[in-house]
Amino acid sequence: MTRETRTVPEQDPGAVRAPFGIHGYEETVAHDTSWNAHAHPWDELLWNERGASIAVVGARAWTITPTLGLWMPAETMHSGSAVAGTWFRATFFGRATTPSLSDVPVAVEITPLLRLLLERLGDAGLDPGSRAATEAMVLDVLTPSPRELLVQVPTSPLLRPIADAVRENPGDQRTLSRWAAELGVSTRTVTRAFNAETGTSFARWVAGVRAQHAVELLTRGWEVEAVAEEVGYRSASAFGAAFRRTTGLTPGSFRPR
Protein backbone atom coordinates (compact mmCIF):
# COMPACT_ATOMS: atom_id res chain seq x y z
CA MET A 1 0.00 0.00 0.00
CA THR A 2 1.32 3.45 -0.95
CA ARG A 3 2.39 5.65 1.95
CA GLU A 4 3.00 9.37 1.68
CA THR A 5 5.37 11.16 4.06
CA ARG A 6 4.99 14.90 4.49
CA THR A 7 7.42 17.34 6.03
CA VAL A 8 5.95 20.30 7.88
CA PRO A 9 8.41 23.26 7.96
CA GLU A 10 9.91 24.21 11.29
CA GLN A 11 8.33 27.36 12.73
CA ASP A 12 9.65 29.61 15.45
CA PRO A 13 6.76 29.72 17.95
CA GLY A 14 7.88 33.08 19.32
CA ALA A 15 8.13 34.71 15.90
CA VAL A 16 4.44 34.53 14.98
CA ARG A 17 1.49 36.07 16.76
CA ALA A 18 -1.38 34.73 14.67
CA PRO A 19 -3.81 37.62 14.12
CA PHE A 20 -6.76 35.34 13.33
CA GLY A 21 -9.32 34.04 15.78
CA ILE A 22 -10.38 30.56 14.62
CA HIS A 23 -9.40 29.24 11.21
CA GLY A 24 -10.10 25.80 9.73
CA TYR A 25 -8.39 23.46 7.28
CA GLU A 26 -9.59 20.16 5.87
CA GLU A 27 -8.34 17.50 3.48
CA THR A 28 -9.06 13.94 2.43
CA VAL A 29 -5.85 11.94 2.12
CA ALA A 30 -5.64 9.57 -0.83
CA HIS A 31 -2.90 7.41 0.70
CA ASP A 32 -1.78 6.35 4.15
CA THR A 33 -0.01 9.54 5.22
CA SER A 34 2.56 10.47 7.88
CA TRP A 35 3.64 13.89 9.11
CA ASN A 36 7.04 14.59 10.66
CA ALA A 37 7.44 15.99 14.16
CA HIS A 38 6.60 19.70 14.15
CA ALA A 39 5.05 22.45 16.26
CA HIS A 40 2.74 25.39 15.50
CA PRO A 41 2.73 28.90 16.99
CA TRP A 42 -1.02 28.54 17.49
CA ASP A 43 -3.31 26.09 19.28
CA GLU A 44 -4.88 23.38 17.14
CA LEU A 45 -7.94 21.15 17.40
CA LEU A 46 -7.47 17.95 15.41
CA TRP A 47 -10.64 16.07 14.41
CA ASN A 48 -11.96 13.98 11.56
CA GLU A 49 -15.05 14.11 9.44
CA ARG A 50 -14.36 10.52 8.40
CA GLY A 51 -11.71 7.92 9.18
CA ALA A 52 -9.01 7.63 11.81
CA SER A 53 -5.70 9.32 12.47
CA ILE A 54 -2.99 9.24 15.12
CA ALA A 55 -1.22 12.12 16.85
CA VAL A 56 1.97 11.38 18.79
CA VAL A 57 3.58 13.53 21.48
CA GLY A 58 6.68 11.94 22.97
CA ALA A 59 5.69 8.42 24.04
CA ARG A 60 1.93 9.15 23.97
CA ALA A 61 -0.23 8.24 20.98
CA TRP A 62 -3.84 9.43 20.62
CA THR A 63 -6.35 8.08 18.11
CA ILE A 64 -8.53 10.79 16.55
CA THR A 65 -11.97 9.90 15.21
CA PRO A 66 -15.14 11.71 14.02
CA THR A 67 -16.39 11.84 17.61
CA LEU A 68 -13.16 12.31 19.53
CA GLY A 69 -10.73 15.10 18.69
CA LEU A 70 -7.48 16.26 20.26
CA TRP A 71 -6.46 19.70 21.48
CA MET A 72 -2.82 20.35 20.58
CA PRO A 73 -1.39 23.38 22.40
CA ALA A 74 0.87 25.84 20.62
CA GLU A 75 4.59 25.01 20.65
CA THR A 76 3.93 21.29 21.32
CA MET A 77 6.07 19.02 19.16
CA HIS A 78 3.91 16.33 17.59
CA SER A 79 3.86 13.95 14.65
CA GLY A 80 0.92 12.23 13.04
CA SER A 81 -0.47 9.71 10.61
CA ALA A 82 -3.79 9.01 8.88
CA VAL A 83 -5.15 6.04 6.97
CA ALA A 84 -6.11 6.37 3.31
CA GLY A 85 -9.53 7.92 2.83
CA THR A 86 -9.46 9.85 6.10
CA TRP A 87 -11.16 13.23 5.85
CA PHE A 88 -9.27 15.11 8.52
CA ARG A 89 -9.93 18.58 9.84
CA ALA A 90 -7.68 20.95 11.75
CA THR A 91 -9.00 24.04 13.47
CA PHE A 92 -6.40 26.65 14.42
CA PHE A 93 -6.85 29.07 17.31
CA GLY A 94 -4.79 32.26 17.25
CA ARG A 95 -3.50 32.87 20.77
CA ALA A 96 -3.49 36.64 20.20
CA THR A 97 -7.29 36.59 20.14
CA THR A 98 -8.50 33.35 21.74
CA PRO A 99 -7.75 31.76 25.13
CA SER A 100 -6.15 28.33 25.24
CA LEU A 101 -8.25 25.38 26.33
CA SER A 102 -5.23 23.61 27.85
CA ASP A 103 -1.45 23.86 27.96
CA VAL A 104 -1.16 20.09 27.48
CA PRO A 105 -2.80 17.85 24.84
CA VAL A 106 -6.31 16.79 25.86
CA ALA A 107 -9.09 14.85 24.17
CA VAL A 108 -12.14 16.85 23.07
CA GLU A 109 -15.62 15.47 22.43
CA ILE A 110 -16.72 16.51 18.93
CA THR A 111 -20.38 17.07 19.72
CA PRO A 112 -22.96 17.81 17.01
CA LEU A 113 -23.15 21.42 18.25
CA LEU A 114 -19.39 21.94 18.16
CA ARG A 115 -19.25 20.41 14.68
CA LEU A 116 -21.97 22.74 13.39
CA LEU A 117 -20.26 25.80 14.86
CA LEU A 118 -16.88 24.89 13.37
CA GLU A 119 -18.50 24.23 9.99
CA ARG A 120 -20.23 27.64 10.16
CA LEU A 121 -16.85 29.31 10.59
CA GLY A 122 -15.88 27.80 7.23
CA ASP A 123 -18.46 30.01 5.48
CA ALA A 124 -16.40 32.62 3.61
CA GLY A 125 -19.43 34.91 3.47
CA LEU A 126 -19.91 35.09 7.24
CA ASP A 127 -20.01 38.73 8.34
CA PRO A 128 -17.63 39.91 11.12
CA GLY A 129 -20.34 40.14 13.75
CA SER A 130 -21.64 36.63 13.09
CA ARG A 131 -18.09 35.29 13.00
CA ALA A 132 -17.27 36.82 16.38
CA ALA A 133 -20.48 35.42 17.89
CA THR A 134 -19.81 31.95 16.46
CA GLU A 135 -16.21 31.96 17.69
CA ALA A 136 -17.43 32.90 21.17
CA MET A 137 -19.85 29.96 21.10
CA VAL A 138 -17.09 27.58 19.99
CA LEU A 139 -14.95 28.66 22.93
CA ASP A 140 -17.95 28.23 25.25
CA VAL A 141 -18.73 24.63 24.23
CA LEU A 142 -15.12 23.49 23.76
CA THR A 143 -14.31 21.34 26.79
CA PRO A 144 -11.93 18.45 27.57
CA SER A 145 -13.42 14.96 27.29
CA PRO A 146 -13.15 12.33 30.04
CA ARG A 147 -12.75 9.76 27.25
CA GLU A 148 -9.63 9.40 25.14
CA LEU A 149 -8.05 6.77 22.93
CA LEU A 150 -4.57 7.20 24.38
CA VAL A 151 -1.74 4.70 24.59
CA GLN A 152 1.38 5.55 26.57
CA VAL A 153 4.17 3.59 24.90
CA PRO A 154 6.72 2.22 27.39
CA THR A 155 10.32 2.80 26.35
CA SER A 156 12.41 1.11 29.04
CA PRO A 157 14.68 -1.79 27.99
CA LEU A 158 12.51 -4.12 30.09
CA LEU A 159 9.16 -3.25 28.52
CA ARG A 160 10.22 -2.25 25.01
CA PRO A 161 10.16 -5.86 23.70
CA ILE A 162 6.56 -6.20 24.90
CA ALA A 163 5.52 -2.84 23.48
CA ASP A 164 7.10 -3.54 20.10
CA ALA A 165 5.58 -7.02 19.84
CA VAL A 166 2.04 -6.03 20.82
CA ARG A 167 1.98 -2.88 18.67
CA GLU A 168 3.27 -4.91 15.72
CA ASN A 169 0.73 -7.67 16.35
CA PRO A 170 -2.17 -6.63 18.63
CA GLY A 171 -3.44 -10.21 18.45
CA ASP A 172 -0.40 -11.45 20.39
CA GLN A 173 -1.77 -13.86 23.01
CA ARG A 174 1.18 -13.90 25.41
CA THR A 175 0.09 -13.31 29.00
CA LEU A 176 1.85 -11.20 31.59
CA SER A 177 3.31 -14.30 33.26
CA ARG A 178 4.56 -15.67 29.96
CA TRP A 179 6.22 -12.35 29.10
CA ALA A 180 7.86 -12.29 32.53
CA ALA A 181 9.21 -15.80 31.97
CA GLU A 182 10.56 -14.88 28.52
CA LEU A 183 12.25 -11.78 29.93
CA GLY A 184 13.65 -13.66 32.93
CA VAL A 185 11.98 -11.51 35.58
CA SER A 186 9.08 -11.88 37.99
CA THR A 187 5.49 -11.10 37.12
CA ARG A 188 5.52 -8.50 39.90
CA THR A 189 8.47 -6.73 38.26
CA VAL A 190 6.64 -6.42 34.93
CA THR A 191 3.44 -5.33 36.67
CA ARG A 192 5.21 -2.56 38.58
CA ALA A 193 7.04 -1.41 35.46
CA PHE A 194 3.83 -1.13 33.47
CA ASN A 195 2.11 0.85 36.19
CA ALA A 196 5.09 3.17 36.52
CA GLU A 197 5.60 3.79 32.80
CA THR A 198 2.05 3.78 31.45
CA GLY A 199 -0.12 4.56 34.46
CA THR A 200 -2.19 1.45 33.85
CA SER A 201 -2.06 -2.34 34.00
CA PHE A 202 -0.66 -4.65 31.35
CA ALA A 203 -4.17 -5.90 30.47
CA ARG A 204 -5.61 -2.40 30.07
CA TRP A 205 -2.60 -1.29 28.06
CA VAL A 206 -3.03 -4.20 25.66
CA ALA A 207 -6.76 -3.41 25.40
CA GLY A 208 -5.87 0.17 24.47
CA VAL A 209 -3.43 -0.92 21.76
CA ARG A 210 -6.00 -3.34 20.39
CA ALA A 211 -8.70 -0.65 20.38
CA GLN A 212 -6.47 1.78 18.48
CA HIS A 213 -5.63 -0.84 15.88
CA ALA A 214 -9.27 -1.91 15.67
CA VAL A 215 -10.40 1.66 14.96
CA GLU A 216 -7.99 1.83 12.01
CA LEU A 217 -9.26 -1.45 10.58
CA LEU A 218 -12.92 -0.56 11.13
CA THR A 219 -12.50 2.76 9.33
CA ARG A 220 -10.97 0.85 6.42
CA GLY A 221 -14.23 -1.08 6.15
CA TRP A 222 -13.26 -4.38 7.81
CA GLU A 223 -16.11 -6.45 9.18
CA VAL A 224 -16.37 -6.54 12.97
CA GLU A 225 -15.81 -10.30 13.11
CA ALA A 226 -12.59 -10.01 11.08
CA VAL A 227 -11.34 -7.16 13.26
CA ALA A 228 -12.06 -9.15 16.41
CA GLU A 229 -9.94 -12.03 15.16
CA GLU A 230 -7.15 -9.75 13.96
CA VAL A 231 -6.75 -8.03 17.32
CA GLY A 232 -6.85 -11.18 19.40
CA TYR A 233 -10.42 -11.80 20.57
CA ARG A 234 -12.11 -15.20 20.30
CA SER A 235 -15.50 -13.79 19.36
CA ALA A 236 -17.09 -10.61 18.06
CA SER A 237 -19.07 -10.28 21.29
CA ALA A 238 -15.95 -10.44 23.47
CA PHE A 239 -14.29 -7.87 21.22
CA GLY A 240 -17.34 -5.63 21.31
CA ALA A 241 -17.47 -5.67 25.11
CA ALA A 242 -13.76 -4.89 25.45
CA PHE A 243 -13.96 -2.19 22.78
CA ARG A 244 -16.88 -0.48 24.51
CA ARG A 245 -15.07 -0.54 27.86
CA THR A 246 -12.08 1.15 26.28
CA THR A 247 -13.73 3.64 23.90
CA GLY A 248 -17.26 4.09 25.21
CA LEU A 249 -18.53 3.35 21.68
CA THR A 250 -19.51 0.29 19.65
CA PRO A 251 -17.23 -1.04 16.90
CA GLY A 252 -19.97 -0.44 14.34
CA SER A 253 -19.88 3.31 14.98
CA PHE A 254 -16.46 3.46 13.29
CA ARG A 255 -17.34 1.58 10.10
CA PRO A 256 -17.92 3.63 6.93
CA ARG A 257 -21.54 4.32 6.10
Rank of each mutant, 00 (worst) to 15 (best):
G208F: 11
T246K: 07
P146D: 09
L158D: 06
A132F: 01
L149R: 03
Y25E: 04
A193I: 05
T189H: 02
G252Y: 00
T91M: 13
A52C: 11
V215D: 05
E148N: 13
W47V: 00
A82F: 06
S156P: 15
T187K: 06
T246G: 00
A242H: 10
W87A: 14
R204G: 00
A214W: 04
E49Y: 15
L159A: 07
E49V: 15
E216S: 06
S102Q: 11
F20D: 05
R178C: 04
P146E: 02
S237K: 09
H31N: 14
W35T: 05
F254Q: 07
S34V: 00
S102A: 15
R3I: 00
G232E: 01
T98E: 13
T175H: 07
R245V: 12
W87I: 08
L249E: 14
W222H: 11
G221Y: 05
V227F: 10
G125I: 04
L142A: 08
A59Y: 09
P66W: 05
A84H: 09
P41W: 03
H23V: 13
S186A: 07
T97P: 05
P144E: 01
P9L: 04
S145K: 07
P128T: 02
P13W: 06
D32M: 01
R192L: 14
E109Q: 14
S130W: 12
S130E: 15
A30G: 14
P9N: 02
G24V: 01
Q152K: 14
